[in-house]
Write a protein that binds this DNA or RNA. Structure first.
Length: 576
RNA sequence: UGGGGUGUCGCCAAGCGGUAAGGCACCGGACUCUGACUCCGGUAUCCCAGGUUCGAAUCCUGGCACCCCAGCCA
């Protein structure tokens, strides 16, 4: 029985406007002034338009928070639209995963789930209109020829010989394209704009291509599919989107979208571009993430080291922490790379509040209290949170034989080390003060295998009888009562801050961190942790935040993932 | 010799002519039965050069640097 329903996956908080505001951003200003002047409409409509060809990552979270957040802030709505115009790359399993992730992040598109494929018929009609208006033509050039004819960045392109076909001929050819008379790549429908434009997007861009491939939603109804550029702007228009928020690379596509919208004389959303999120020590492009999965550098899209939402979730991140992160990074047009430390900070801030405390020993070292009666047991009632008594308490069994962390003992400690060492005293958290009297080692290897200590019975739960102070406090677990567990220690996936920016070694995969995962199989955790539901999160005192692995953990063999360490000023000082 | 963008603290980011917010990180210190949390305190003159102005990060001119665009990908 889990006492902390707010700590389980089912009851995650949803995004609300109650989260405190940070500084404003340029998009908010634009919308506010549009609203004031009554520019596009009274009601703000935004949309989050992913392509269902991969999993969502933290960069998408920025866009999701932005689009849903802005809509909520201005009393409007945000649609979820799957941009599925390329049947070769898209799958419905991705679409489902996307919906699950957006929901998990805390956003609700209500009944406004759309697909670009919903508009295929309408888009086709738009294409026909442009053909009839003499603004589009069927081109027989091969893909290679089209590229040659396009010119270069500094030289204008040349017009295709097919450019001046009659409307009738174009209509006929386009109909036959749709009817499936031609093989893939043999013909395309192009917009007739300007082959000399400095903006390559306007050099007669392809609107439709022939793809004899089944689509995950429309099956084999179509064998011609609209290009993203021909579908996206019109899809936004059809949905009545007032503000089409997208990333920087679409800035020079905007004139093209404007052109289509103007020719078609349909509703004209305002497109606003912002810089996509980059995070230090990871990669964010879908192509690279797919590669990491396919080449088995990670365990799958939900590997806890992945920056995917599903990976972060399995790692133990909370939706609230991710939303807070997205709020704090801001929105602007300059390219930037956010320090992953900020993400971790948001996580710790959230989990510090919500995660119940537990004791767990990762690298056990046996400790025997020689003056504690054999066979005796007692229980300590420990608070689940040091500052929040409303989170309750739980009982922790104590006995003569315990395990402590190997790191909490040093035979020859440096200055200012106030954990256990021969002849020194330390407090066992919530229990007694013990003194180390003797060190037992393995005769063969010399390795320390056990500590013999004596405890001070007067120190139970408070200062000892003589009032002496003990600076060091360590965590422990009763040897007889502890539950065995596997713990997976995760670290950053790459050892370079910018894995893709190294001139010496351009292959980002060469910068993978070989130590990004360390599996500990002989951990001992307090009994209470044996009952943890999947995905529940805890703070293991003095160690960090951990969550129950959603895939591999079982009641008999619990598996914990380390979400993040606690800040550690001792380790940082280089002492440990 | 094309087009489109961007340059404010180590990393993000406000600022919109009136004399540089905030967050993260970092460095001190207080507190503490988590070396956690919390709490105090500390750290920039705005890519460069001219100009306009009583006054410029904000306006003008000229440079420089970086990013994106030549998929029948999105």
């Amino acid at each position: 029985m889990n006492k902390f329903p707010e700590n389980t996956a089912k009851q995650e908080t949803t995004a609300s406007s109650g989260e405190e505001a940070v500084s404003t951003n340029f998009i908010r200003s634009i919308i506010a002034s549009d609203l004031k002047s009554g520019a596009p409409a009274k009601k703000v409509v935004t949309r989050f338009p992913p392509e269902p060809n991969g999993f969502l990552h933290i960069g998408h979270a920025k866009s999701i928070c932005l689009n849903f957040g802005l809509a909520a802030e201005f009393g409007g709505v945000c649609n979820l639209r799957l941009d599925d115009t390329n049947p070769i790359k898209e799958e419905s399993t991705y679409a489902e995963a996307i919906m699950e992730d957006v929901r998990w992040l805390g956003f609700d598109w209500e009944n406004r789930l759309y697909y670009a494929s919903d508009y295929f018929e309408q888009l086709h009609e738009f294409a026909l209109r442009l053909i009839r208006a003499g603004k589009a033509y069927v081109d027989d050039l091969s893909p290679e020829q089209i590229r040659e004819y396009r010119g270069t960045l500094t030289e204008p392109g040349r017009e295709s010989p097919c450019r001046n076909r009659t409307v009738e001929e174009n209509l006929d050819l386009f109909a036959r394209m749709r009817a499936g008379e031609f093989p893939d790549g043999s013909r395309v429908l192009r917009a007739k704009i300007d082959m000399a434009s400095g903006n390559l997007n306007l050099r007669d861009p392809v609107m439709y291509r022939i793809l004899n491939a089944p689509h995950h939603r429309t099956g084999d109804v179509w064998c011609i599919y609209p290009m993203y550029d021909f579908a996206h702007g019109q899809s936004d228009s059809i949905e009545g989107v007032t503000h089409s928020i997208c990333t920087l690379e679409f800035e020079d596509h905007r004139p093209l979208y404007d052109w289509f919208l103007d020719q078609l004389e349909i509703h004209h959303p305002r497109q606003i571009e912002f810089a996509r999120l980059n995070l230090s020590y990871t990669v964010m492009s879908k192509r690279k993430l797919l590669e990491l999965v396919r080449e088995k550098h990670v365990d799958g899209w939900d590997d806890p080291r992945m920056p995917t939402l599903t990976g972060l979730r399995r790692r133990g991140y909370t939706p609230g922490a991710i939303r807070d992160f997205c709020r704090r990074i801001g929105v602007a047009k300059r390219e930037s790379t956010v320090d992953v430390g900020l993400l971790e900070h948001c996580l710790r801030e959230d989990l510090n509040e919500s995660a119940p405390r537990r004791m767990a020993v990762l690298n056990p070292l046996r400790l025997v209290i020689t003056n504690y009666p054999e066979g005796r047991n007692e229980e300590f009632e420990a608070p689940n949170h040091p500052q929040k008594s409303e989170m309750g308490t739980r009982k922790i069994p104590f006995a003569r034989e315990l395990y402590i962390e190997r790191d909490d003992f040093m035979e020859d400690p440096p200055k200012k080390y106030f954990r256990l060492s021969p002849g020194r005293e330390v407090r066992l958290r919530y229990a007694y003060i013990v003194r180390c009297d003797e060190v037992i080692r393995d005769e063969a290897t010399g390795e320390v295998v056990e500590l013999r200590c004596t405890y001070d019975p007067t120190s139970r739960g408070g200062a000892p009888a003589d009032g002496r102070k003990v600076k060091g406090i360590i965590h422990w677990v009763s040897a007889a009562h502890a539950v065995s567990a596997e713990v997976r220690l995760y670290d950053r996936l790459f050892r370079k801050e910018n894995p893709t920016g190294d001139r010496q070694e351009p292959d980002y995969r060469a910068h993978l961190n070989p130590d990004s995962l360390e599996v500990l199989t002989d951990c001992r955790v307090e009994p209470e942790l044996g009952k943890s539901p999947q995905e529940s999160r805890y703070q293991f005192e003095r160690l960090g935040y951990f969550c129950v692995d959603s895939r591999d953990s079982a009641p008999a063999n619990p598996v914990f993932n380390r979400t993040a360490t606690l800040r550690d000023s001792w380790a940082k000082a280089g002492q440990a």
